[in-house]
Design a protein around this nucleic acid. Structure first.
Lengths: 238, 238
DNA sequence: CTTGAATTTGAATTCAAATTCAATATTATA
DNA sequence: TATAATATTGAATTTGAATTCAAATTCAAG
């Protein structure tokens, strides 16, 4: 059924209905693995129950033994994906304290990797956010959470600016959106205008990180750290 | 029918099938007006033929006299909307030659207005781009086209940087994406975190324009032009 | 081994919309 | 005004999946 309801039809968190036996767990896992493939290939809107059960090699009716509907399964799969790909803490450990550029770059590298490796799934994130209010909120909370470190630092970082907490968040939010558009059009939509001379993952992450850094600090990151964007050193008003 | 095909099922450009009589024109207009309302309210995926004909006050069968399917009608409505809202030329006339900030601000004001006035339709733009390859390409071409003026200026603007044409485009594309995310989350998804102390249209446009300008020129726009973002004058590395 | 509960199957059913089309109304043209 | 063409109606049909469920299978416990 094409979902017309606004709210999610998800049950308890974890989506687990019946079948907690080892066999059940295996079946559930098979369905989720199949769903991930289908989502990557055809996207959420064109995914059918038969696609998933077919891929999983089980009968279509089995689907309902484990999930009430496609949205529920998709939600589980995507939540797993998000949880798996956005382990901010891990990344921040490697970054020298106070090295803002390294930190920004590390974050962006993570995001770019997700887009490069699973463009279809990244697309599904948007698709599902568009049809499930709760999931959308979760994603935004996640986004805001990753921004909190920076938002928190703003008063200390720019004491002279004395901006309100809300304004700091607006600024950071604006900056953080940088790159989302180009990532989508590059990796998901594969626009020829962008992809013709292709960029490596590091190059893309660097580009976005540098533009972010410039907007934030009104200066370029240290020259020795730049490669693809080295020429941007000279991109400033004459 | 939920569309499963990748390509658009659109006929000739303009989508005109039969009914070019004055009456036909009127009926077509009624359907388009109704579709605009439905799209704004429920979005593309949950729109039904009965919703449109119901709103238009005609029998459901009449729909097929003028359009082969919902996608075709939606495409027309959204193309009209895009053509109507993005008249770049008009805006640029008012802008003093060489006043980069004014130009950027004017562009952003246009975009912000679209989001503020028709958030549902802006959402549909994404929805349709996601399900129709051709429409997506059209939107991106449009986007790139609006960026051409700037991309073209890059070599003259920053001769020392001597960046390749493609790199200039990547930089501009990245910058131009700034704001899309916050606009969507503010106007379309109405995230409380963002909207709690609300911003006026001019304030939002100013915020995005200033961040864009900073990333581009590594400096702030002239202080006397800033209002909401006046404090950003002091947002730079100490 | 036996037994019963849980799992799995896939054909049959249901369902929400899309789509058709014969009948009717309206408009344009001679 | 008569006649043909076009527009409009909405009930009936078709469509494409979702959903159900009785029967078959597997598995774990006794």
């Amino acid at each position: 059924m094409v979902d017309r309801e606004i709210r999610s039809s998800r049950k308890i968190a974890g989506g687990t209905g019946k079948g907690n036996s080892p066999k059940g767990e295996r079946a559930r896992a098979k369905l989720k693995a199949a769903a991930l493939l289908v989502l990557e290939e055809v996207g959420y809107h064109r995914m059918r129950i038969a696609d998933v059960t077919g891929r999983a090699g089980v009968a279509s009716g089995l689907f309902y033994h484990y999930y009430p509907d496609l949205k529920s399964l998709t939600l589980e799969v995507l939540e797993d994906f998000v949880a798996h790909s956005r382990r901010v803490e891990d990344i921040e450990k490697d970054v020298p304290q106070g090295d803002w550029y390294a930190r920004i770059l590390a974050h962006n590298l993570l995001v770019v990797q997700s887009y490069a490796q699973r463009p279809g799934i990244m697309r599904c994130l948007l698709q599902l956010a568009d049809s499930d209010e709760d999931f959308a909120r979760m994603l935004r909370r996640n986004f805001v959470h990753q921004l909190r470190w920076l938002t928190r630092q703003m008063p200390k970082l720019f004491p002279a600016a004395a901006m309100s907490e809300h304004q700091a968040m607006m600024v950071v939010y604006t900056l953080a959106g940088t790159g989302e558009t180009i990532l989508r059009d590059y990796y998901v939509n594969r626009d020829e205008v962008l992809t013709d001379p292709g960029l490596g993952i590091e190059q893309m992450a660097e580009l976005i990180a540098v533009m972010f850094y410039r907007g934030l600090f009104l200066e370029n990151p240290p020259a020795e750290k730049l490669h693809y964007t080295a020429v941007l050193q000279d991109m400033r008003k004459a």
